[in-house]
Design a protein around this nucleic acid. Sequence first.
DNA 1: TTGTATGCGTTATCAC
DNA 2: GTGATAACGCATACAA
Lengths: 323, 323
Amino acid sequence: MSGPSRAPTLADVATAAGVSLSTASLAFSGNKPVSAATRERVVAAAAALGYSGPNPLARNLRQGRSGVVGIAVGQLSTAFRDPAALAMLDAISEVLGASGLGLLLMSDDDDHARLPLDAVIYDICGRETWAAYDDLVARDVPLVVVEGPAWPGATHIDIDHRSGSAALAAHLHDLGHRRVGTVTLAASHPQREREAGLREVFPEATVVGACDSDVAAAQALVTGWFARSGDATAIVCQSDVQAAGVVLEARRRGIRVPEDLSVAGFDGVATPWLDLELTTVVQPLAGKGRTTAEAALARIRGTAVDDVVLPVELRIGDSTGPA
Amino acid sequence: MSGPSRAPTLADVATAAGVSLSTASLAFSGNKPVSAATRERVVAAAAALGYSGPNPLARNLRQGRSGVVGIAVGQLSTAFRDPAALAMLDAISEVLGASGLGLLLMSDDDDHARLPLDAVIYDICGRETWAAYDDLVARDVPLVVVEGPAWPGATHIDIDHRSGSAALAAHLHDLGHRRVGTVTLAASHPQREREAGLREVFPEATVVGACDSDVAAAQALVTGWFARSGDATAIVCQSDVQAAGVVLEARRRGIRVPEDLSVAGFDGVATPWLDLELTTVVQPLAGKGRTTAEAALARIRGTAVDDVVLPVELRIGDSTGPA
DNA sequence: TTGTATGCGTTATCAC
DNA sequence: GTGATAACGCATACAA
């Protein structure tokens, strides 16, 4: 037995099985009926030759699709530090996977232009701009933008930041709070919407500062505020992770939550290292992910897709109380 | 102006520029010198036609590479809940990205057989088996296994679980501890190695139970142990996240750390929501990621690669004290 | 430096 | 149900 100098191809299998190339192809793809006997001969020949199925590269070229969807998320360790991002990613991956599509992580610094992507999802976690957007538009790659500003040609999936934020503010107002501070994300579409919602109720709300959705970052941010004895009775954060940081830092300084200070979050994720339940704006993370993935699938199919805005819901926990 | 019925190809550009197909190709790839004048004509023609560069699908088939490396991680939200996993993923992504390769997430339930991957990284976070391994071997896809058991044909990247665990155990023994419990991961190569290291010092160590690397899971696990008043003076965990869960649950029950109970972790990640520094085994997470990615790159190039075992280092913090 | 000619391995269209 | 044939769009070995 002489080792084959190159990997066997479908043509080799067809020859060995004594059938035509097209028949061998059909035996594997099942795109058209093939007699059981023939299929068996093909499969046997494939096994004998060590043929491991149609070459995906060739199939992709022929079909004009790569079977891969890109997702732009900035730096990974930052983007996924917040469990809210993970929950959504999980849902996206699940829906795409069920359709046989792979999910490719796109760091914003390397060039995805060389990769054949069937669609690209932009998850705007507090970012304003993304490189390579024009590139993708030029290539006619279907684009789905999550929580982003309006981009021509893209499908937009969003949540109702503004209403959620306003509902939370109303809750605080009902509790008697009048001086509120807010910890923000970097300037971005969701941040602007949420701040607008907050200011519907508290036009004079004070911005404590901006930081990533990260416990340590939030702690570092508010520590200065506390030192300056910022005069708010409530602090509104943009994520539960941020809120957890604020709660922890407050306690470290002997400030009781919610007796001395009310703290609110956003997202509705579990915070097991906190022994109280945060008052927060719950967003449908898995639903957002599924909707996003389904929009990408539809765009790939060529179906028209409407933009979607998902509702959110205020959940009152133990981290807010009377002023 | 009549809209073009199909997207322009390199051949169209070549024709429009009055050069040959190969010259046009070279103008884009730069693989061989092309006169500046010619290149300019090609670029101009491309712009005029709205040609957005060589089709990646075609290039991939021609070159026999996809430019994508897969990484198998199980369910995403579980795999990445631990910051240790993220730190490593980040390093992998960075190194691969610098070489123009994309990183594709492989959930273990969907079939990657349809995707053309240049290499696959298996990150064994406490898992024993992975579907589609045989498939990949059959396809001759380079495999890199991180912290996994010996797999024929794969390159292995590992850390010195056993020594690290033994060093930690020795530290506890020095402190006078004699009755230690351990929280484990699911049965897996790293778990077995670490337990062996622990038993070098404490042959009688008690297994409290197994759980994922997750704060809530660890809390849930040890709560029963505390209730049964498990008689250990120290608990060794398999991740800092697990250790944090144990510390939090201990405190919730009025058990002081480290006065009443010493708790140790593994990894050396930041735990901002804990106000003490964990005693832990620090592993080079970014280095592990870089090494893994470089191994994948080498395997793709066809270079031989040796297996690597990276050293770890004991870091004594405030969570362990005299028995 | 440029042009000519193949072939990468498959799927789809058509006829039988 | 099966077979012949034509693309898919490009990169490269080779000749000029």
